[in-house]
């Protein structure tokens, strides 16, 4: 938060300048002017709720000379410091961008996994109870019970590193060092028969690790693969022959309130 009255005043003044400038940049022809009736009846009679943003552009002539012409100066927020960005910038991409310096062996990873992870995921990544299974499952994706593990399903090894680094161990996350994280990921890759027992995973060799199911992912194609669902005018009468009940929830009876309210007609 603001540290002093002077700082507050300075920001308030900057903000006031921004406020004075912006309305001049807003498009008066926009269908819903910001700050006024946001959702109103459009020409079609349907309610519209488009988001309208003042177009960024050169500051009007009346703007202070110090305002950069390339961006809307509102006078809010401040520059992020490099050490602040470093503290939160923990994401890792498949091409290795974001990987920290470090390395870890499969053997060290096994020790760490047993200490930190096995309670939920099992000693060999087989999963305990309803906690995620991390290893095995190859060849099950077309079965009635697909087992989606790192080796059988996940497309990128970088995701494993990223996720362990940001959110594991569950309940004590972001407690592992970079070397520890490399080691645990190395052990998980070994459990999935992707690297040998003597493997040492590091920032340098990480991008070379490929997961087998990666080629089987493709971008959303519903608009072509499911084009038939755009029917416009579906059938209204005599659309099917005799209709029968084919499955009932009562048979499984897994609803939390085991005794749902009954109808009152007797």
């Amino acid at each position: 938060m603001w540290k002093s009255a002077e700082a507050l005043l300075a920001v308030a003044v900057a903000g006031a300048v921004g406020l004075a400038v912006l309305p001049a940049g807003a498009d008066p022809a926009a269908p819903a002017e910001p700050g006024t009736a946001a959702q109103k009846t459009g020409e079609t009679g349907k309610l519209q709720q488009a988001v309208n943003v003042p177009a960024p552009g050169p500051a009007p002539a009346s703007a202070p000379a110090s305002a950069p012409a390339s961006a809307p100066v509102i006078g809010l927020g401040r520059t992020a410091l490099p050490e602040e960005i470093a503290a939160w910038n923990i994401d890792v991409r498949p091409d290795g961008e974001g990987l920290p310096a470090g390395a870890g062996s499969v053997r060290r990873g096994e020790d760490l996994f047993l200490q930190n992870c096995a309670t939920c995921h099992g000693e060999f990544g087989e999963g305990a109870g309803r906690w995620p299974v991390l290893a095995g499952g190859r060849g099950t994706l077309q079965s009635d019970r697909p087992e989606k593990t790192i080796g059988s399903f996940w497309p990128y090894a970088s995701t494993v590193f990223d996720y362990v680094r940001r959110a594991m161990p569950f309940g004590n996350n972001q407690s592992l060092t970079a070397d520890d994280t490399y080691a645990i990921v190395a052990y998980l890759l070994n459990l999935n028969d992707l690297v040998p027992e003597d493997y040492v995973l590091s920032k340098d060799n990480f991008p070379k690790v490929e997961l087998p199911n990666q080629p089987n992912f493709f971008d959303d194609d519903r608009e072509t693969a499911e084009k038939a669902f755009w029917k416009n005018d579906p059938c209204m009468a005599d659309c099917a022959g005799a209709v029968h009940v084919t499955a009932r929830a009562q048979v499984l009876n897994v609803t939390p309130d085991a005794d749902p309210p009954k109808g009152n007609l007797e």
Binding site: R93, T159, D162, Y163
Partner: peptide
């Protein structure tokens, strides 16, 4: 490019009958 995070790869992707998976089904 996308970051291929856990919630857009191992989760929130749609496994089809043929074993392939749709991703970015937003």
């Amino acid at each position: 490019q996308p970051w291929q995070q856990r919630e857009e790869t191992s989760k929130y992707t749609d496994l089809l009958a043929d074993g392939r998976s749709r991703r970015f089904t937003f």
